[in-house]
Design a protein around this nucleic acid. Structure first.
Lengths: 137, 137
DNA sequence: GTAATTATAACTAAAGCGGTTATATTATAT
DNA sequence: ATATAATATAACCGCTTTAGTTATAATTAC
């Protein structure tokens, strides 16, 4: 399952993207605007920073700036950066592929189903979400 | 995530479907043929029976018979009978939809991604898996 | 009656999830 | 300088789910 943290990360990026480029927002502001626990905002921003998408500015009057073009961040990327590789079943995820037999037809079905899901997620960017109206899930 | 038990259930049904209609197989045989812990086979057969897909015959020389036409059982059905409703995110699953706001664009994306995945799973039947070669994941 | 089988429920260890707590670091304002 | 507001980072914790086990009862062929 796609975790809540991944959802939060997407929402955080969307919040940043819904302000003029270069705007500084604090964790507290993001937390308040989007109803996400502050601690989680901080925790997730650390990961987003590591991905090179945001920069942190310390001290009072500090905050976070969105560095990457939100039109170039798709949802799959965000999810995988937070949750790790996506896998709708164990055999697509961390377990060995089905007792090491590579041509199991069930595995093929899983892979196909997952790919169709990922195609949708890859097709949506943070920018597009920011352009829509309500995103505070 | 689609659980291992759901996968097992699919494999159990596939095993049954890969024998002539009306064939009686014991839990032990299924377990051995497909490398699934016997206890789990028994546990899962109970659910499959409740769904009306299999019948159990007690006593020695007993076992299980596939009742439903395997061409009429698709993977989504099996998964949902074992795991409950599928949801790739919490907001599509058991939580309230996003703070009760129904037009959150993120929710729409999740729903679309999930639907694409489900379309694939609905399009594959137990019969089709039984017709392929290797399924013992 | 014994053994082989299904039927059913309760239990358990391990992992993952969602979130909290604690502490350190940096920079501004006075 | 000192207090303060902010990010940075790591460790921790309770809860739920998962995957599997254990135990016991019911049925039936021989």
């Amino acid at each position: 399952m796609i975790t809540r943290k991944a959802e939060y990360a997407i929402i955080i990026l969307t919040e940043l993207a819904s302000h003029p480029r270069g705007t500084i927002l604090t964790s507290k502001q993001i937390s308040k605007n989007r109803s996400i626990p502050v601690n989680l905002v901080v925790q997730l921003l650390a990961v987003l920073k590591k991905a090179g998408w945001t920069t942190g500015i310390r001290g009072p009057a500090g905050g976070v700036i969105l560095e990457q073009d939100p039109g170039k961040i798709n949802l799959r990327e965000v999810i995988e950066i937070i949750d790790g590789p996506i896998g709708i079943t164990r055999c697509l995820f961390r377990d060995r592929p089905c007792h090491d037999r590579s041509h199991c037809s069930l595995r093929g079905v899983w892979a196909k189903a997952q790919q169709h899901m990922l195609n949708v997620l890859e097709g949506v960017t943070i920018q597009e979400l920011a352009d829509s109206t309500a995103n505070d899930c």
